[in-house]
Amino acid sequence: MTIFRVFAATVALAAALPAAADEIPVKMLNSGPNGMMVFDPAFVRLKPGDSIKFLPTDKGHNVETIKGMAPDGADYVKSTVGQEAVVTFEREGVYGFKCSPHYLMGMVALVVVGDKRDNLEAAKSVQHNKLTQKRMEPLLAQVQ
C-alpha cells in the first residue's frame, strides 16, 4: 500500500469517527475581569456532547439552572456550594445559570449549545432583578 493510500484511509477513518467532546473550565469568582461575583467566562458556546467544568475558584459559589432558561427536557442543574460540577450538554439550545448565593448580585452565565435556538425567546422573557438583568442582557445579545 502506498503512503498516499495509507494517508487517505487514515483521513477517511478520522472523518467517520465522532469528534471528541470538549470540557470547558468556567471559574466562579468573587472578583473577575467583568466585576464582582462573576462566572469567567460568562458566555460559552458548545457542541452537543461537550461539558463545562464549573470551578468554585473562590469559596461560596455553586451553579444552578435559572428556571425558564433551558431547552425542554434538559436536566435541571444544582450543585453543592463550594463543589466542582461537571455538566454535559446533550440538548441544543440556550441555558441560563446562576450562582444561587449571589444571583441577586448578578452572578449569571449563559451557555449556547449547537445551532438550535428554539428556547431563546423564552429565555429572554425570564424576569431578573435590575443588576442581574443588566448582566444578562449583553449575554443574550451574543446569541445569534
Rank of each mutant, 00 (worst) to 15 (best):
R5N: 15
V6D: 11
V6N: 07
F7N: 04
A9L: 15
T10Q: 09
V11L: 15
A15M: 13
A16P: 01
A16D: 03
L17M: 14
A20Q: 14
A21H: 12
I24N: 00
P25H: 02
V26S: 01
S31C: 05
N34G: 01
G35S: 07
D40G: 04
A42I: 00
R45G: 02
G49D: 05
G49M: 07
S51F: 05
L55G: 00
D58A: 01
T65Q: 03
K67F: 11
P71G: 08
G73N: 07
D75F: 05
Y76W: 06
Y76R: 12
V81Y: 00
V86Q: 11
V86F: 07
V87I: 15
E90L: 09
R91A: 12
E92C: 06
G93Y: 06
Y95G: 03
Y95D: 04
G96K: 07
F97H: 07
K98S: 11
C99W: 09
S100T: 15
L104A: 13
V108E: 01
V111H: 03
V113I: 10
G114S: 10
L120D: 05
K124G: 10
H128K: 03
H128I: 01
N129R: 05
K134W: 05
K134I: 02
E137D: 15
P138V: 05
L139V: 11
A141I: 01
Q142L: 12
V143A: 10
